[in-house]
Amino acid sequence: MDVFMKGLSKAKEGVVAAAEKTKQGVAEAAGKTKEGVLYVGSKTKEGVVHGVATVAEKTKEQVTNVGGAVVTGVTAVAQKTVEGAGSIAAATGFVKKDQLGKNEEGAPQEGILEDMPVDPDNEAYEMPSEEGYQDYEPEA
């Protein structure tokens, strides 16, 4: 019985440690998101679009440190934060509304985080759909 109880105690310690790591990862992701939003706020009209992409990228980098179902929630929060940063930029006159959601080359930025393969159960990952990809044929 002692062996059984000791095993359960060790398992509990492992769960607590994993929860603490997840909590730490979420806190880091939130900190990076805040950094990115402050970065966007300090940019001029020309830099705002690039700044919004930076927020998304920093958040995406930190999301990889967070495991399990938390990833889905962090990704949703990050996307809403990026959308909010863009709205703030438009409201303050840093950028025109028609410039939001495009990178410096004018290509749409939507789907940055949505296409990231995420499995809350950590069982399997699927690649994003290939609808947006084109076949590449090298020139002879």
Rank of each mutant, 00 (worst) to 15 (best):
D2K: 03
D2M: 11
F4D: 01
M5K: 15
M5I: 00
M5G: 01
K6W: 09
K6A: 14
K6C: 15
K6Q: 10
G7Y: 13
S9V: 05
S9P: 00
S9R: 14
K10A: 05
K10M: 09
K10R: 05
A11M: 05
A11N: 00
A11G: 05
K12E: 00
E13A: 05
E13V: 01
E13P: 00
E13Y: 02
E13H: 03
E13T: 08
V15E: 00
V15N: 00
V15A: 07
V15F: 03
V15R: 00
V16E: 10
V16D: 01
A17F: 10
A17M: 14
A17S: 12
E20Q: 03
E20I: 07
E20A: 05
E20D: 10
E20P: 00
E20W: 15
E20G: 02
E20F: 09
E20Y: 11
E20L: 15
K21A: 14
K21T: 13
T22S: 09
T22G: 12
K23V: 10
G25S: 11
G25N: 02
V26S: 01
A27P: 00
A27S: 14
A27K: 07
E28V: 07
E28A: 04
E28M: 08
E28H: 08
A29K: 12
A29Y: 12
A29G: 02
A29Q: 04
A29V: 15
A30L: 15
A30Q: 01
A30F: 05
A30E: 00
G31P: 01
G31S: 08
K32V: 05
K32T: 09
T33C: 02
K34M: 09
K34L: 09
E35Y: 04
E35H: 04
E35C: 12
G36K: 11
G36L: 04
V37H: 00
L38G: 01
L38S: 09
L38V: 07
Y39T: 11
Y39S: 07
Y39A: 08
V40C: 08
V40K: 01
G41S: 02
G41I: 04
G41D: 00
S42L: 08
S42V: 11
S42Q: 06
S42W: 12
S42K: 12
K43D: 00
T44V: 03
K45N: 05
K45W: 15
E46W: 02
G47C: 05
G47M: 11
V48F: 14
V48R: 01
V48W: 09
V48M: 09
V49M: 11
V49F: 13
V49Q: 11
H50Y: 12
H50T: 15
H50V: 01
G51I: 02
G51R: 09
G51Q: 14
V52T: 01
V52N: 01
V52W: 01
V52K: 02
A53E: 07
A53V: 15
T54G: 05
T54S: 03
T54C: 14
T54V: 15
T54K: 04
V55C: 05
A56Y: 08
A56N: 03
A56G: 08
E57M: 13
E57N: 08
E57C: 05
E57K: 10
K58Q: 11
K58R: 04
K58V: 10
K58T: 10
T59A: 15
T59Q: 01
T59D: 01
T59V: 14
K60Q: 13
K60D: 01
K60V: 15
K60Y: 10
E61A: 07
E61L: 03
Q62V: 09
V63M: 08
V63G: 04
V63Y: 08
T64G: 06
T64F: 09
T64A: 13
T64N: 06
T64W: 10
V66K: 04
V66L: 13
V66H: 03
V66N: 03
V66P: 03
V66W: 14
G67E: 06
G68M: 01
G68S: 02
G68I: 15
G68Y: 11
G68R: 14
A69K: 10
V70S: 02
V71Q: 11
V71N: 03
V71W: 14
V71E: 04
T72C: 05
T72A: 08
G73R: 07
G73I: 09
V74K: 01
V74T: 04
V74M: 05
T75D: 07
T75F: 15
A76G: 14
A76R: 10
V77N: 03
V77M: 11
V77T: 07
V77D: 02
A78P: 02
Q79G: 06
Q79L: 15
Q79Y: 14
Q79T: 03
Q79R: 07
Q79E: 06
K80Y: 04
K80H: 13
K80C: 06
T81K: 02
T81L: 06
T81M: 04
T81R: 08
V82A: 07
V82K: 12
V82S: 09
E83Q: 07
E83M: 02
E83G: 03
E83N: 07
E83W: 13
G84N: 14
G84R: 15
G84A: 15
G84Q: 14
A85Y: 03
A85M: 13
A85G: 13
A85I: 07
A85L: 13
G86Q: 14
S87R: 03
S87K: 03
I88T: 04
I88Y: 02
I88P: 09
I88R: 08
I88D: 04
A89S: 11
A89T: 06
A89Q: 10
A90V: 15
A90N: 15
A90S: 15
A90C: 01
A90T: 15
A91G: 11
A91H: 07
T92C: 03
T92F: 15
T92V: 14
T92G: 07
T92Q: 04
G93I: 15
G93H: 12
G93C: 01
V95G: 15
V95S: 15
K96V: 13
K96E: 12
K96S: 09
K96F: 13
K97N: 08
K97W: 09
K97F: 09
D98K: 08
D98W: 10
D98S: 08
D98H: 06
Q99N: 13
L100V: 08
L100W: 02
L100K: 03
G101K: 15
G101Q: 14
G101F: 03
G101V: 09
K102P: 15
K102S: 10
K102W: 09
N103V: 14
N103G: 10
N103C: 10
N103R: 06
N103L: 09
E104S: 13
E104I: 07
E105S: 06
E105N: 09
G106D: 01
G106R: 05
G106H: 04
G106V: 07
A107H: 12
A107M: 13
A107R: 07
P108D: 05
P108T: 06
Q109D: 12
E110S: 11
E110D: 03
E110M: 06
E110P: 10
G111K: 15
I112K: 05
I112M: 07
I112Q: 05
L113D: 13
L113I: 15
L113W: 14
L113P: 13
E114V: 10
E114N: 13
D115E: 10
D115A: 15
M116F: 01
M116G: 05
M116C: 10
P117H: 10
P117G: 07
V118G: 14
V118W: 13
V118E: 11
V118C: 13
V118N: 13
D119L: 06
P120C: 13
N122H: 08
N122G: 02
N122T: 10
N122I: 03
A124P: 09
A124S: 06
A124T: 02
A124V: 09
Y125V: 07
Y125A: 11
E126K: 13
M127H: 05
M127L: 15
M127C: 11
M127W: 04
P128Q: 15
S129A: 13
E130T: 09
E130C: 14
E130M: 14
E130N: 07
E131Y: 05
E131N: 10
E131Q: 11
G132L: 05
G132T: 11
Y133V: 14
Y133P: 14
Y133H: 07
Y133L: 10
Y133S: 04
Q134W: 02
D135G: 05
D135T: 12
D135V: 09
D135W: 05
D135C: 07
D135P: 06
Y136S: 11
Y136F: 11
Y136L: 07
Y136I: 06
E139A: 11
E139K: 10
E139W: 05
E139P: 08
A140H: 11
A140V: 05
